[in-house]
Simulated scan of single mutants.
Amino acid sequence: MPQLTVIGYPLEFTLSPKIHNIWLNKYKLPCKYLQSSLNDEQFLDFIETKKFADYLGFNVTIPYKEKILKYLDYASQEVIKTGACNTVHIKNGKLYGYNTDYIATRNKLKGIKVNNCLVVGAGGYAKAAIEALCDEIPACNIDLCNRSIKTITNANYIGNINNVAKVYDLIIIAIPRSDTYYQIIEKFQDTKVIDATYAHEDILTKNVLLSGKELLIEQARYAFEIWFNILPEKLDLALL
Rank of each mutant, 00 (worst) to 15 (best):
K110A: 03
N115L: 01
N154V: 02
K70T: 14
E201S: 08
D73P: 10
K187P: 04
Y198M: 10
Y181V: 04
P63S: 07
T5Y: 13
T100K: 03
Y222M: 06
L240V: 13
N25E: 15
N86L: 04
G97D: 06
K206F: 06
K234R: 10
E12N: 14
I226R: 09
N21G: 00
I230L: 12
C145H: 05
K213N: 09
N86Y: 02
Q35A: 09
K70Y: 14
G97I: 12
E225F: 00
G57K: 02
N162V: 07
R221G: 01
L11V: 08
C145S: 15
A155F: 01
V119P: 04
K213C: 01
G93F: 12
L144N: 13
F58G: 12
I149K: 14
Q42V: 11
C31Y: 14
Y98I: 01
K18M: 09
E131A: 15
E48S: 13
N86I: 03
N154E: 02
M1I: 13
P2Y: 14
T82V: 13
Y168T: 04
I47H: 12
D179I: 11
K28Q: 12
V119I: 11
Q3P: 06
D45L: 10
Y96V: 02
D202A: 14
L215S: 09
G57I: 06
T205Q: 02
A196C: 15
Q35S: 15
H200N: 15
C31D: 04
F228R: 14
H20W: 12
L133Q: 10
I152K: 03
G212Q: 03
E48V: 14
D101S: 06
G124Q: 07
L209C: 01
K18G: 02
K94F: 08
L4M: 07
Y181Q: 05
A104F: 09
I62C: 01
V208S: 08
K166T: 08
I161Q: 01
Q219G: 03
S16V: 11
E12I: 13
I68K: 00
Y168V: 07
G111D: 03
N99E: 09
T180D: 15
T5H: 05
E131I: 15
I112N: 02
L69G: 08
F228D: 12
N107F: 10
T197L: 10
L38R: 00
G121S: 09
V60K: 00
W23L: 00
L11F: 01
G83D: 00
D190P: 12
F13A: 04
Y198I: 03
C140P: 04
S148H: 13
K213F: 09
K113N: 15
K26Q: 15
A139L: 10
E214D: 07
I90V: 15
T205A: 00
A128W: 00
E12V: 08
Y102P: 13
K81Y: 02
G97F: 01
A128H: 09
P232M: 00
K166G: 07
E214H: 12
L215C: 06
K65H: 13
I161K: 13
P138R: 08
V193E: 04
I112T: 05
